[in-house]
Each structure stands twice: as structure tokens, then as C-alpha cells.
């Protein structure tokens, strides 16, 4: 049986205590543990001490208000999917959350953990023994990136399914650290670097997610398309999150498209310059889809042929925007729907 290495484990009830513990050497934070524990079992993330957020009260729950919704960082993915209002108001977001792994994992995993989930690469998400046989890689202990051997950087890809759609929906997160709290857009949380992928300090804790009312179903139309091999369990090898705001005459006033899993952070596609001021139509959508394909940097470090994933960025962007525009979607849809269980 693959087991965790020995650790010291703490589960304090006060957030300050969690933050204080994080100040020491070799400490890691855990919430649902569905990312951290596998990584520690494979020993590419190590710690002497793991401090859990799970006993801290007040970080769980979905609070709907007139400005939008506040979701506590410890809220489970299952609770988000089961929230009727969430599904009605942010269908693309709930669809993204419902596509994360599998039901038992979703009842353990937290939304905060999902945003902070480690980047992934098939040279990295392997056991200590396996990684020894490639002499490790840049992201952990090694000197070479095996995905691009001449590259000075790590190309591990962003793995969070909620991240691209939350970026597209202008969501924000609240971070609390030793120096107090700050609220930043989700899009500012990520950095295009496979190793240092979060723009937050290691002792800053994400406590809350805020999705503004301005991006709910009454104000904008959104879509989320996730590509993966099977209808469950699998991470995305590509995801497309899109949101479009229109005025009463159906002219686009604002639009966002983000790609997941084809870069070390959610990849923003410049769509406003194409779409704003125009009604959505096939021709424009085609151009956006081409831009998406260009912006994607699928690497050979996950499932499926990289070049095909790039091509799929085009197809899926097209499909997502057609879905938003109410145009016929020709591309085969993912096998998973939004089934509440």
C-alpha cells in the first residue's frame, strides 16, 4: 500500500494559529487533502508538519446576497453542485465543479484547495522511485525540464477546473495572512510558472471566494467545456471557460474566455477586441477560436496528443461560444453532464 511519509499533523481551531504554524520551515497547509495527500504519498511534495484548516470554524458555507455569492474556502465541491441557486445562477461554474474528479472526491475536496491545487505533469506526478529513474526534473529536485529540455522554466499545467471559469466570471478571493487580509481577482492569483504558480505568499490563506452578481445568469451567459478521456475521475487536458455580457440589442459589451490545462495558469484569450460592440456570430466566434488555439501551449505532459489538444482548443472554444450564442453546437459534447447526486 502506498502510504504517507511520517509527519507531524495539527488541526487547530483558530485561523491565526494555522497562519502562525505556516511560518515555520517545512510546513504545508491542507484542506480536503485530495491534492496534498496523493502528492505527499508520491513524495513530490514533502513536509515535516502539515497543518489543517478543517477544524477552523466559519470557513464553510454558501452565502447568497445581492452582490453575489460568498463561498467559504472549505466548502466542499459536492455542496456547491447541490446548491440549487448556484446551479441556477452560475451554471457554467457549477458545471465546472461537477466535472472535477468523482463524487466521493468532490465530497472531500474544497473549493479553496481547488483554486490552489498544484500544477501537473506526467513527469512530476509520479512516485519517488519513478522520479529517481528520470533523475527528477526542474519542478522537484532536478535540473532539466523533460518536457522541453532546453527550457529554463517548468511547463507543468494548471489543473484547477474552477480557476478558468472563475477568472471568466470576474470572481475574487479573500486572502488572509500574517499582514492582514486582501481581496484580489481570481485572475490575479495565478502566475504562468509551473513551479511558482500562485501569486500569494505561502502563509497566506484563501478564506473566501466571491462571485459577483454581475456575472450571474441574469447578467451574462457563460459556458464551460472540459476535455478528458473518460466521463469521470480524469483531470482536464483542456478546458474552455467563457462568459459574454450583452446589451438589450444583443451587442456584446464584455466578454472573457480562459483556457485551462494548456498553460501553467489559466490562459486568457484576448476576445474583447474582437467581440465588443458586435453581436455574436459564427464568423467572430471562428476568429476567437483561432486565437484560442494560438494561445494554448499544450505540452506532452498529460493525456492525449499535444497537437490534437491544441486543435481541440479551437473546437471547444467554438463550441462554448456557440452554446452561449444559442448557435448549433456541432462538436461532440463531453460525456459528463451536470448530474446532481
Amino acid at each position: 500500500m502506498l502510504r504517507l511519509p511520517p509527519i507531524d499533523y495539527r488541526s487547530p481551531q483558530r485561523l491565526e494559529e494555522v497562519i502562525a504554524t505556516l511560518a515555520s520551515e517545512n510546513v504545508r497547509l491542507v484542506a480536503g487533502g485530495t491534492d496534498l495527500w496523493p502528492n505527499m504519498k508520491r513524495r513530490h511534495q514533502l513536509a515535516d508538519t502539515v497543518v489543517s484548516l478543517m477544524s477552523v470554524p466559519g470557513l464553510r458555507g454558501i452565502e447568497h446576497g445581492k452582490d453575489g455569492v460568498k463561498i467559504g474556502a472549505l466548502t466542499s465541491l459536492a455542496d456547491i453542485v447541490r446548491d440549487d441557486k448556484m446551479r441556477a445562477l452560475w451554471p457554467a461554474f457549477t458545471r465546472a465543479v461537477a466535472s472535477i474528479s468523482s463524487p466521493p472526491l468532490r465530497s472531500m475536496a474544497t473549493i479553496g484547495g481547488n483554486l490552489c491545487v498544484d500544477t501537473r505533469c506526467t513527469y512530476y506526478n509520479q512516485t519517488e522511485e519513478w522520479r529517481r529513474s528520470i533523475d527528477y526534473c526542474l519542478k522537484e529536485k532536478g535540473t532539466i525540464c523533460w518536457v522541453a529540455t532546453k527550457s529554463p522554466r517548468c511547463w507543468a499545467h494548471s489543473a484547477s477546473d474552477s480557476a478558468p471559469i472563475l477568472c471568466a466570471l470576474d470572481a475574487q478571493v479573500k486572502l488572509i495572512g500574517p499582514d492582514g487580509e486582501r481581496v484580489i481577482p481570481v485572475s490575479a492569483l495565478f502566475r504562468d510558472d509551473g513551479i511558482d504558480y500562485l501569486c500569494k505568499k505561502s502563509d497566506e490563506i484563501l478564506t473566501e471566494l466571491l462571485i459577483p452578481a454581475g456575472s450571474d445568469q441574469d447578467h451574462c451567459r457563460s459556458a464551460f467545456w472540459k476535455l478528458r478521456r473518460r466521463g469521470s475521475i480524469d483531470f482536464a487536458v483542456l478546458s474552455v471557460a467563457a462568459a459574454v455580457w450583452t446589451d438589450t440589442k444583443n451587442t456584446v459589451t464584455r466578454a472573457t474566455v480562459y483556457l485551462g490545462a494548456v498553460g501553467s495558469s489559466p490562459v486568457s484569450i484576448d476576445v474583447e477586441s474582437l467581440l465588443v460592440g458586435q453581436p455574436l456570430n459564427e464568423d467572430l466566434i471562428k476568429q476567437v477560436a483561432q486565437r484560442a488555439q494560438k494561445a494554448a501551449t499544450p505540452m506532452d505532459n498529460t493525456d492525449f496528443a499535444a497537437a490534437w489538444r491544441g486543435k481541440m482548443a479551437n473546437n471547444y472554444t467554438h463550441a462554448a461560444l456557440n452554446e452561449i450564442a444559442g448557435l448549433p453546437v456541432r462538436c461532440a459534447p463531453p460525456k459528463h453532464g451536470l448530474t446532481v447526486v
Binding site: 506526467t122 506526478n125 478521456r229 473518460r230 466521463g231 469521470s232 475521475i233 480524469d234 483531470f235 493525456d303 460525456k335 459528463h336
Partner: peptide, 9 residues
């Protein structure tokens, strides 16, 4: 996870 075998869907 990465050796793909079909699931319920």
C-alpha cells in the same frame, strides 16, 4: 488515473 480504463460513463 493516467492508464485509462473505461468507467461508468
Amino acid at each position: 488515473l493516467e492508464y485509462k480504463s473505461p468507467g461508468f460513463h
